[in-house]
Each structure stands twice: as C-alpha cells, then as structure tokens.
Simulated assay, not measured.
Amino acid sequence: MFHNQRAVYLSRMLLVFSLIAVFLVLVLLLKNQYFLLFSFMVLLCTLLPAYWRFEHQPLKTQTLMFVAILIALAVAGRVPFASIPSVQAASFVIILGGVVLGPELGFVTGSTTALVSNMFLGQGPWTPWQMVAWGLMGLTAGFIGRTKFRHSLIAMIVFGGVWGFVFGWMMDLWYALAYVTPLTPKSFILAFVASAGFDLNHCLSNVVLIGLLYRTWEKLFNRLDRKYSFLPKQ
C-alpha cells in the first residue's frame, strides 16, 4: 500500500515538473511574451503537490496563516536590499520555511515569494524562472528538514551556500537561452561566468544569515509548530 502511494505521488510530481518545464519553454519560444500568464501557471503547478499531499487532511487556518507570514517575511527580506545585487534575506526565510513545513509548502513559499516580491521590484520574463528556482529551494529544504541534517548548522550553511550558486545558475540558463546569440559553448559559459560575482553575493548572504540566525529562528519556528501543529501527524 505504501509503495503504491509513493508511486502515485512520484508520478504526480513528475507531471508537475513536466508542466513547469513546458511553461518555461513556452516563455522562451514566445519571445518572453505572456510571462505573467505563465507565472501564474507555474504558481498553480507549485500548489498542486501541497493539494495532493493534504487532500485527505485539510490544512488548518493556522498553517495557512503561517505560510502567508513566511511569504511576507521573505518579500520584506528581499525588497529593501534590491539595490545590492543578489544580497537579500528571502532565501534564508524560504529555507527555514521548507525545513519546518516540509517540501510541498516550502515549494509554495518559494514560488509565491518570487511572484509577490516582483510586484514591487518589477515583473518580467525572469519571474517564472525565479519562481521555479526559489520553489525548488524551498522544496529541497523541506526534504532536508526530514533528516538529521536540519539540526546541523554546518550542513545548513553548506546547503544555503550551494543554493546561492544553484539559483544563479538557473537564472543564467534563462538568460543564455533567451538573449545570448549565437548560442555557442563559449558564449554559454561566458554567460555563467559573467554572473559569478552576483552568485557569490547570494551564496555569502545565505551563509551569513544562516550562520547568525538559523539556530534562533529554528527554535522559534519549532516552538510555534509544537503549539499550533502546523502539519498533520503521520
């Protein structure tokens, strides 16, 4: 029974990521037109895993409020630092949210943060790609949260630092596919190299914030989780 449920869940997740990939490709093929429509389609896709995960166990009001608060904190952690390239606190909040709430709600938190914060910073064809990148950050943080590594500060620092580069590489991929012509191996690599400084800024901001605040915020979030039981007990 368990293996059947797991197979169904994996097949559903494969469908979600296949749809997201289609939307990202369509953004490129349509020359970055209708990007806002595709952004909302990506958001819908990120909501599906949470819906499937909790279809027989509805989320409590407290859980939905906590997700909304996390998104607001992540947006507030990004907008004020917009003048400093790639330096922001959004990734830190998304990682903590994923650790506490699990992969499905971490996915929702990350993708929604990109869409909402870009309402202040400016929407564009980069929005769906940022939604996917931050969504995957929250998703993978949720998987880390199910392991003993969530209690290791060193492991979380490494995780945050690596994601600072992975996020940048995903955005570099979009930029290269959308704007670099002719797209040759050399120009493709140069597109990635040109943003290395920005990726390093993102990495270092994640490392510093996790190093300074992770323990405190994890204890606070865990205390809230014990009080309100955000997720149904397995």
Score class of each variant (00 low, 15 high):
202 H>C: 08
226 R>I: 11
97 G>P: 07
190 L>A: 03
65 M>F: 11
181 T>I: 13
125 P>R: 00
83 S>L: 15
180 V>Q: 02
180 V>I: 12
192 F>V: 13
149 F>Q: 14
8 V>R: 13
209 L>R: 02
120 F>N: 15
60 K>I: 06
51 Y>F: 07
151 H>W: 10
49 P>E: 10
177 L>V: 02
114 A>R: 03
183 L>D: 06
225 D>Q: 14
148 K>S: 11
172 D>V: 00
36 L>M: 11
50 A>V: 02
159 F>G: 02
8 V>Y: 13
111 S>W: 06
219 K>F: 15
164 G>M: 08
33 Q>C: 07
166 V>N: 13
226 R>A: 11
2 F>I: 15
104 E>G: 12
76 A>W: 04
141 A>C: 07
177 L>N: 02
110 G>D: 05
42 V>P: 00
192 F>P: 01
197 G>K: 15
178 A>L: 06
114 A>F: 14
26 L>A: 12
67 V>A: 01
27 V>R: 01
41 M>T: 12
216 T>G: 11
122 G>P: 00
31 K>P: 09
84 I>V: 05
87 V>M: 07
197 G>H: 12
135 G>N: 00
4 N>G: 14
212 L>P: 10
117 S>Q: 05
139 L>P: 06
116 V>E: 00
133 A>S: 10
121 L>E: 14
124 G>R: 09
85 P>G: 06
97 G>A: 07
91 S>M: 03
160 G>A: 14
110 G>A: 02
227 K>C: 09
234 Q>L: 14
127 T>Y: 04
134 W>M: 14
180 V>A: 10
3 H>K: 13
27 V>G: 09
113 T>S: 12
97 G>Y: 02
12 R>D: 06
63 T>S: 01
109 T>L: 00
86 S>G: 07
167 F>S: 01
76 A>S: 12
126 W>I: 02
133 A>Y: 01
21 A>Y: 08
28 L>A: 13
130 Q>E: 01
26 L>G: 08
196 A>S: 11
95 I>K: 03
158 V>M: 11
201 N>G: 06
54 F>M: 05
81 F>P: 00
88 Q>S: 08
80 P>G: 02
4 N>A: 13
102 G>T: 07
203 C>D: 06
138 G>C: 13
34 Y>F: 13
4 N>S: 14
171 M>Y: 09
174 W>D: 01
102 G>S: 11
38 F>C: 05
13 M>H: 05
139 L>D: 00
181 T>K: 14
76 A>L: 08
165 F>D: 03
100 V>T: 01
39 S>G: 07
40 F>E: 02
18 S>H: 11
160 G>M: 02
223 R>F: 06
105 L>R: 04
206 N>H: 00
70 L>S: 08
37 L>P: 03
55 E>T: 15
129 W>I: 05
152 S>T: 06
17 F>C: 14
100 V>K: 00
84 I>C: 11
222 N>Q: 05
128 P>M: 03
38 F>Q: 04
7 A>I: 03
